[in-house]
Simulated scan of single mutants.
Amino acid sequence: MSAFVVPIEAREAPARLAVLRRSGRVPLVLDERWPAQVRADILSLLAQTPAPDGAEWAALTSGSSAAPRVVVRTHASWARSFPAVERLLGTLPDDVVLLPAPPSSSLTLFSLAHALERGPAPELAATSSRATLFHGTPTHFAAVLASGGAPRLRAALVGGMTLPADIRVEALARGIRVVEYYGAAELSFVAFDDDGTGLRAFPGVQIAVRGDVIWARSPYISLGYLGAPGPLRRDGAWVSVGDRGELRDDRLRVTGRADEAIQTAGATVVPSEIERTLRTLEGVADAAVVGLPAPGVGRLVAALIEPVRPGCLDAATLRAAAADLFAPAHRPRLWFAGTIARTSSGKIARAEVERRLASGEVPRV
């Protein structure tokens, strides 16, 4: 008889994960922040679609640009990387890992799976007086540093998006070892940077860039998706989710996620590259770039700015800065100011940002 993935509520984790794993069932932690229709669709998928042979864990893609997908994997595909993670972080027997992202996030679920095999004890919270380690996104890590909410932190594992250089510098100044990594729910760890010199292949992984697409050969790859297809592609032992990058002197630079690119007036614009530059401007706390439909050119590049304080930026200042920083096709043409929508793991929720800008819910600068 085929096994089915068992949905559990976030508040039931991590205790129920251990019970389900011991019984040989495949758990999936639901996200309580999902819209009702997304939740209904996921539950319907789980009820109708048996898990593939060998599946022991189910995790979710971030849903940053589309509806989340269910990724299934063996336990070994995660467990093989536990020793490398422990070496990189210098884990000790009594360590506690702070996990600010919800257990529905694949990065948090990884650490919960690690804890079941005598890894660091997990603490699902935004702050902790006990935590000595951290695992989460740069957004969560920056918040922890800003709040001083984890005074005993010794090392941090940070992934999900590019880590701003100033956050690494601040952490190091506080004596916190930082290990940044690039990966995906489908691929797990692909590359890491533990000294600020750039991403290099994670232990056990081979990396290749074909054209501008990142491929990996790895023992940490998932089995694929439950039901609906996704961006995971296979070419023999090599796999890719379509993310773009450059590989020079064994250092990987991730230039964009597979589903982010904006086609505008014959040019291809990678939002993460524009965002990275916008964040360097005075008065900009954060930035999100999306494409809004525009007849004749495909899409217009639009930037949503989170200002350091309300009213500190105006359109003329932003346009002048963009003219100095970007080629004409890559300059944002529409500017907005407001709060950036994020996924539960802290990544930019691009589909929701685009919807809010297109609907007029966010004011123009």
Rank of each mutant, 00 (worst) to 15 (best):
L325V: 06
E352R: 13
L116I: 04
R299I: 05
I176N: 02
V254Y: 04
A320Y: 12
K347E: 06
R39P: 05
V70H: 03
A15V: 02
V205R: 01
S344Q: 10
I207D: 00
G338Q: 13
L232D: 00
D314M: 13
G175A: 15
T108A: 02
L300K: 04
S23G: 07
L107H: 11
G63W: 15
L357S: 02
V70T: 10
R257C: 08
R257G: 15
G63T: 13
V6S: 09
S240V: 01
S129A: 15
E361P: 11
E361L: 14
P293R: 01
D324P: 12
W34C: 11
V269P: 00
I262S: 02
H140T: 06
K347S: 10
P14Q: 04
T255H: 11
A79Q: 14
E56Y: 02
L107S: 12
M161S: 11
A341T: 06
A358V: 13
W34F: 00
A288T: 07
T280K: 13
A84C: 05
A13S: 15
R342K: 14
E170N: 06
D166G: 10
I262P: 00
A329I: 07
V269S: 04
R174T: 08
G346E: 09
R118Y: 10
A351P: 03
D286R: 05
W34S: 05
I176T: 03
I274G: 08
K347P: 07
A66C: 12
T197C: 07
L334A: 01
F141Q: 06
T49D: 12
L292E: 03
